[in-house]
């Protein structure tokens, strides 16, 4: 079952107008308030088009809240090896994953604000989960420094100066705990790097990654659609133009 490229037209797009029509059908005569009632006045498309016609927009989001320039370069290079550019489309770097991770570490996730960080801290079994006292932002800083040191030690160059194969080699050694680091777990750092990279590739563009929804487009993920009632029973695979939460404003 291959998808028919000709099908990828405007008709295929579950548009806002169609959503309103469908949902009023589905809802029937019921008085349902809440979100459903308030989705009607949309108006951002025109605003966006006006802006784009005028000039190229500067992305003010692309500045650093947490990492140093050097750390940022390393994060970006490492994320690119985890999710590289290829014939399918852009890699982590072009998708803005470096900025995504920087912004996450600057906020509540980086501070483990909603985790139980109360002492005493003891080493546990792996089935008991993370038991360290370090916060994610601290793990990142230490991990990046260790990665730099290890690159120099093994290849006599900083991580960003290495060839792709050498970078993969360094990352593998971290992933498989072949690196001797003391304050953090090498594989724990790698897992955090990998999970935040995938988050940056696939989260809503509002968080700074997945620029222009290019991450979603590569896998035909339609993002934020209000309604799939028309296609849910369909045998055919549907390619739907993605939408983001920006379209809700």
């Amino acid at each position: 079952m291959t998808e028919d490229k000709n099908e990828k037209s405007g008709a295929e797009n579950l548009s806002r107008r169609k959503f309103i029509r469908n949902s009023s059908y589905a809802v029937g005569g019921l008085a349902v308030g809440g979100v459903l009632g308030s989705v009607i006045p949309w108006g951002t498309e025109n605003d966006d088009q006006k802006q784009q016609a005028g000039k190229q927009i500067k992305n003010y989001n692309h500045a650093l809240m947490f990492f140093s320039q050097a750390e940022f370069q390393t994060v970006q290079a490492a994320a690119e090896r985890i999710f590289p550019e290829d014939e399918n489309g852009p890699g982590a770097k072009e998708l803005g994953v470096g900025f995504y991770i920087d912004h996450q570490m600057a906020g509540s996730y980086g501070f483990n604000a909603r985790d139980y960080m109360v002492p005493p801290f003891f080493h546990g079994e792996k089935e008991q989960g993370y038991q360290g006292r370090l916060k994610r932002r601290e793990i990142f800083k230490i991990g990046l420094r260790e990665m730099q040191n290890y690159s120099h030690q093994k290849f006599k160059k900083g991580f960003t100066e290495l060839s792709e194969e050498q970078q993969d080699n360094v990352l593998s050694d971290f992933a498989e705990d072949k690196v001797n680091v003391t304050t953090i777990s090498a594989s724990g750092f790698f897992d955090l790097l990998r999970s935040t990279t995938l988050e940056g590739v696939y989260s809503d563009p509002l968080y700074g990654g997945n620029i222009d929804m290019e991450g979603w487009k590569m896998r035909n993920y339609p993002g934020d659609q209000m309604n799939y009632t028309d296609i849910i029973e369909d045998d055919k695979f549907h390619e739907i133009e993605p939408r983001s939460l920006r379209d809700h404003m």
Partner: peptide, 25 residues
């Protein structure tokens, strides 16, 4: 309330950052 879910199609916020879950701290 239902109105809270206007921006609910946000995998990161709800599924990975546990917006609707108890604060473990």
């Amino acid at each position: 309330q239902t109105e809270d879910y206007y921006m609910v199609h946000d995998e990161l916020r709800y599924a990975l950052r546990y917006e609707l879950m108890q604060d473990l701290s």
